[in-house]
Amino acid sequence: MFRVLHLADLHLGYRPDLPAPVQEEVYRERNGVLQAAVDLALDPRRGISLVLIAGDLFDNHRPEAPLVEETIRELGRLEAAGIQVVTVPGNHDEITYNDSVYRREANRWPGLLVTEPMPAKVATLRLNGDTCHLVAMAYTGGVTRVDGPLKAFPPAEGEGVNLAVFHGSLDWDGGERSLPLDGEALSAAGYDYIALGHIHRGGQRQLGRGLACYAGMVAGKGFADPGTGSWTIVTLGDGPALVEQVAAAVRPWRVVDVDVTAFHAPEELEAAIRELIDPGALVQVRLTGSIAFDLDLEGLQARLGHLCSYLDLVNDTAGWAPELLESLAAEPTIRGLFVRRLQEKLAGAAGPGEAAVIRRALWRGLLALKGGCGPCRL
């Protein structure tokens, strides 16, 4: 039996949409994920014999030169330690282009760099005394023949472990560059393990005798793409593939939904948000429901922002509670007149789209009458 570290979608070089200086901190941390993966593979307690990189090692096909050099050094550490490494290009770091990093650095890339444009047997490896037959491909625009999901896979060989590596979309046609893969055809090919990249959230699926697995993206790119926060280690040999998820020391992206409807005072809402903030994380708090009091997001940001690595307050509320608006509308003030006028327009709105615009105008107008909009994110 032998053990594999299955990596995919590290997206080295990605710069997150965050303000300075936290953007630079997270950028450096994400680029350090490969070093952490190599350290894990070199830990003798893990017993790793093979490292698979199933596409999108880089976030684009022309990463910065220092990052390329660092990556080659890290993969070289695996090679020097006798751990075999296989790299499959993805759709972000696509090999198609003449200036692709994989074309420019092919002669000194550590381990096996897959360049075949169609599924093919690329190697027979000896791993911890076992024979491993490896099938893989690298999507290449204009050369890879994609007319619907790929179905032409080399059949598994009779003796040894049959392993396949693809950066593609299993039973989902997201376009040619997403490399759609036919699940029935992969099942019929008879592989023991199919190492996949492209789907960041990870996941597994049984395909005949074998297991197809998306390793997922370890370190997140943003609140909508938070990553898995774990490494994927696979044991292969006698019996079915066994997959283990090992926690990775990466900074998490957390999204917390808070329904403000239940709160009657701003102090209650602030106390609830404090309890939900993870100090070591990048946190987005999405406020929903109807507001029964003036919502001061700028003040909340100032008082709570220091409690975590980064705090993003998003106002997804439906606006003020009806009873509060009625109270404001009754005021003999400019604000009261403004609310009454907007309520009249809202009552006569032609449809949901126009009503949403009027509600946003009401929200922004009331904030402006208080002296500023703040980070309302509308």
Results as ranks from 00 to 15, higher is better:
residue 154 P to T: 05
residue 280 G to T: 00
residue 2 F to G: 03
residue 149 P to N: 12
residue 148 G to D: 05
residue 223 F to H: 14
residue 125 L to Q: 10
residue 217 M to H: 02
residue 203 G to S: 08
residue 142 G to F: 06
residue 147 D to G: 11
residue 24 E to R: 14
residue 61 H to Q: 06
residue 295 L to G: 01
residue 350 A to F: 00
residue 311 L to R: 11
residue 285 V to G: 01
residue 116 E to W: 06
residue 250 V to A: 06
residue 53 I to S: 09
residue 16 P to E: 07
residue 138 A to T: 03
residue 3 R to H: 07
residue 2 F to L: 09
residue 171 D to K: 06
residue 327 S to T: 15
residue 243 V to I: 12
residue 342 L to S: 01
residue 347 A to R: 15
residue 302 A to Y: 02
residue 240 P to G: 08
residue 26 V to S: 01
residue 96 T to C: 08
residue 75 L to W: 01
residue 303 R to I: 05
residue 57 L to C: 04
residue 100 S to I: 05
residue 275 E to W: 03
residue 132 C to H: 08
residue 350 A to V: 09
residue 363 W to Y: 11
residue 272 A to S: 13
residue 199 I to C: 09
residue 346 L to T: 02
residue 56 D to M: 08
residue 44 P to H: 09
residue 166 F to K: 06
residue 103 R to C: 03
residue 354 E to S: 07
residue 150 L to D: 05
residue 317 T to Q: 07
residue 368 A to I: 06
residue 285 V to I: 14
residue 65 A to K: 13
residue 73 R to G: 13
residue 239 G to W: 06
residue 311 L to C: 06
residue 42 L to H: 08
residue 40 L to D: 05
residue 45 R to K: 14
residue 30 R to S: 09
residue 83 I to S: 04
residue 265 A to F: 13
residue 110 P to S: 02
residue 211 L to T: 03
residue 294 D to R: 04
residue 317 T to P: 07
residue 321 A to G: 12
residue 324 L to W: 10
residue 110 P to M: 07
residue 144 T to S: 15
residue 65 A to S: 08
residue 261 T to D: 11
residue 27 Y to S: 12
residue 111 G to I: 04
residue 243 V to T: 11
residue 167 H to C: 07
residue 161 V to Q: 00
residue 143 V to R: 11
residue 168 G to C: 07
residue 240 P to H: 09
residue 349 A to Y: 14
residue 166 F to I: 01
residue 207 L to N: 02
residue 308 C to A: 13
residue 361 A to N: 11
residue 159 E to N: 11
residue 201 R to G: 04
residue 146 V to I: 15
residue 317 T to R: 03
residue 289 G to R: 08
residue 152 A to F: 01
residue 228 T to R: 12
residue 265 A to S: 14
residue 256 V to K: 12
residue 178 S to N: 15
residue 333 T to V: 05
residue 141 G to P: 00
residue 106 A to N: 04
residue 178 S to Q: 14
residue 202 G to K: 10
residue 124 T to L: 04
residue 189 A to W: 02
residue 310 Y to S: 09
residue 146 V to A: 07
residue 319 G to N: 08
residue 221 K to Q: 14
residue 297 L to C: 06
residue 183 G to Q: 12
residue 301 Q to D: 13
residue 211 L to H: 01
residue 278 D to L: 02
residue 364 R to S: 10
residue 104 R to L: 15
residue 271 A to E: 14
